[in-house]
């Protein structure tokens, strides 16, 4: 499990901390970005094994981030998961259409997060 680098993207520092802490606790390495733009720049420098991103963020939202990452050859098949609060189908569809692998509906607890991450990485 070592060396698996995950990029966590959320404009909320507490959510980011929670996600990063939980994943690190589970043995993953985690890089953090505060918005889509920052994440996109980081992702261009390094191929992460998984990107977890919030939907609503300043500068670049999660859906645009997913759309843009999918254009990168390094991210053609990388799992891109959206952390979404909207449980309605609209955002999920929008995310899927942009190329997201799946989603995790907030609020989620650390166990659910790990389970989901292991589902795509294990």
């Amino acid at each position: 499990m070592s060396q698996v680098r995950i990029l966590a993207v959320d404009d909320s520092a507490s959510m980011r901390q929670m996600v990063a802490f939980t994943l690190r606790d589970a043995g993953f390495e985690v890089a953090e970005a505060a918005d889509g733009q920052e994440a996109y720049e980081m992702a261009q420098r390094e191929p992460f094994k998984l990107v977890l991103c919030d939907v609503n963020m300043p500068r670049m939202d999660g859906i645009s981030l997913v759309r843009q990452l999918r254009q990168l050859s390094n991210y053609k098949f990388t799992p891109l998961l959206m952390l979404t609060t909207e449980s309605g189908p609209e955002k999920k569809q929008e995310g899927k259409a942009a190329g997201a692998t799946g989603w995790l509906v907030k609020p989620f607890n650390p166990e659910q997060l790990i389970a989901t991450v292991q589902r795509v990485l294990g």
Partner: peptide, 17 residues
């Protein structure tokens, strides 16, 4: 097709926001 299996690079840089 495993797109993810690439060497990890520039780790230090990536961590800097």
């Amino acid at each position: 097709a495993s797109a993810a299996a690439r060497a990890e690079a520039a780790r230090g840089e990536a961590a800097r926001g």
